[in-house]
Amino acid sequence: MPAENSDIPRIGLGTYGLTGAEGRAALSSAINLGYRHLDTAQTYGTEENVGEAVARSGLDRADFFVTTKVTASNLGRLAESVDDSLETMQLDYADLVLIHWPAPHDDPPVSAYIGALARVQDEGKTRLIGVSNFTRRHIDEAVAEIGEGRLATNQFEQHVFLQNRVLAAHCRERGIAVTAYMPLAGGRLGDDSVIGAVASKHGATASQVALAYLLALDSIVIPKSASPERQRTNLAAGDLVLDGADMGRLAGLERGQRYINPAWGPDWY
């Protein structure tokens, strides 16, 4: 029986770029501060570091929530690639496996590979399955193929400047949690006067305000940081409570500003 979406910790650590010795130090710092949700991918080059960090933590494997993502070039060998990821991480199972992107130009279509993802879950190689960067159409095609209740989350770019309200609402209507990547807009928050005013009001940082806003919208957030201090403040965003006036002002920052938009990516609508 699939695990509940609520099993996904609300704040995680994105690991894109946390490679080599500096990446290992960043992961160790994050775990020491209390992070348990670690988000990696086959294309990040951080699966080995994530697995090593879990092993060296001294904590039980069950204390962690580890996400990895299957890259488009592996869709034809999805199950084998998940085996490869588990071997790289030295883990018996993942907590969440995502399709990183729908296949470029929908070749192959969702129906050709989403069933293989469901079978990976059925075989116990992952507790939850989901998708990333899927449009409403892709979501509907996946659900039509494997049924309601199988997809735990859709991970996509979401921040105060790209709130993706239509896609987020569609996911939630289908019982699929929203996971926001790039929740800090790639570090582009600092000059915004609205964010600054809300931060000053609460004695918080701009990053904490941006994360607290998404959390209040019921999104899961996976900010990346190698700085122990930034990791600490990001994690503390879970304790920041914004009022209705704050939420209204931050909602007004929506401007459709997408930062991750490869030429081969889906047609966003």
Rank of each mutant, 00 (worst) to 15 (best):
Ile139Val: 13
Thr15Met: 08
Val70Ser: 03
Leu189Tyr: 02
Ala41Met: 08
Leu235Trp: 00
Ala245Met: 04
Pro183Trp: 08
Val194Lys: 11
Val54Pro: 00
Gly23Leu: 07
Gly58Asp: 07
Asn133Ile: 00
Gly186Trp: 11
Tyr213Glu: 04
Gly51Thr: 04
Ala41Val: 07
Glu87Ile: 09
Phe65Ser: 06
Ala199Glu: 06
Ser81His: 07
Met247His: 09
Val131Gln: 04
Ala62Pro: 07
Arg127Asp: 07
Ala212Trp: 06
Leu215Lys: 08
Pro102Gly: 03
Ser111Lys: 11
Asn154Tyr: 00
Arg188Gly: 05
Ala226Gly: 13
Pro262Gln: 07
Ala21Met: 11
Ile31Asp: 00
Leu27Ile: 10
Ser225Val: 00
Arg255Ile: 01
Val97Arg: 03
Arg136His: 05
Leu242Lys: 12
Val209Phe: 02
Ile220Met: 09
Gln158Met: 12
Val82Arg: 08
Glu173Ile: 10
Glu254Ala: 08
Ala251Glu: 15
Glu148Gln: 13
Ala118Ser: 13
Thr15Ala: 06
Asp191Pro: 08
Gly203Glu: 09
His37Phe: 12
Asp83Cys: 09
Ala197Phe: 09
Ile99Val: 15
Gln42Pro: 01
Arg165Met: 08
Phe65Leu: 04
Gly244Pro: 12
Asn5Asp: 13
Gly196His: 10
Arg258Phe: 12
Pro183Gln: 13
Ile146Gln: 05
Glu148Lys: 09
Leu242Met: 09
Met89Arg: 05
Asp246Trp: 02
Ser227Gln: 10
Thr153Lys: 02
Ser227Lys: 07
Leu128Met: 12
Gly187Lys: 08
Ala79Gln: 14
Arg150Pro: 00
Ser73Ala: 14
Gly190Met: 12
Gln163Phe: 08
Arg10Ile: 07
Gly34Trp: 09
Gln158Asp: 03
Val160Gly: 02
Glu48Tyr: 11
Glu80Gly: 09
Pro104Gly: 09
Ala226Asn: 05
Ala210Ser: 14
Gly149Ser: 08
Gln42Gly: 14
Ser219Met: 01
Asn261Gln: 13
Thr126Ile: 04
Leu13Phe: 05
Ala118Leu: 13
Asp106Tyr: 12
Asp243Asn: 10
Leu59Gly: 06
Tyr93Glu: 11
Leu117Cys: 06
Glu148Val: 07
Ala72Cys: 12
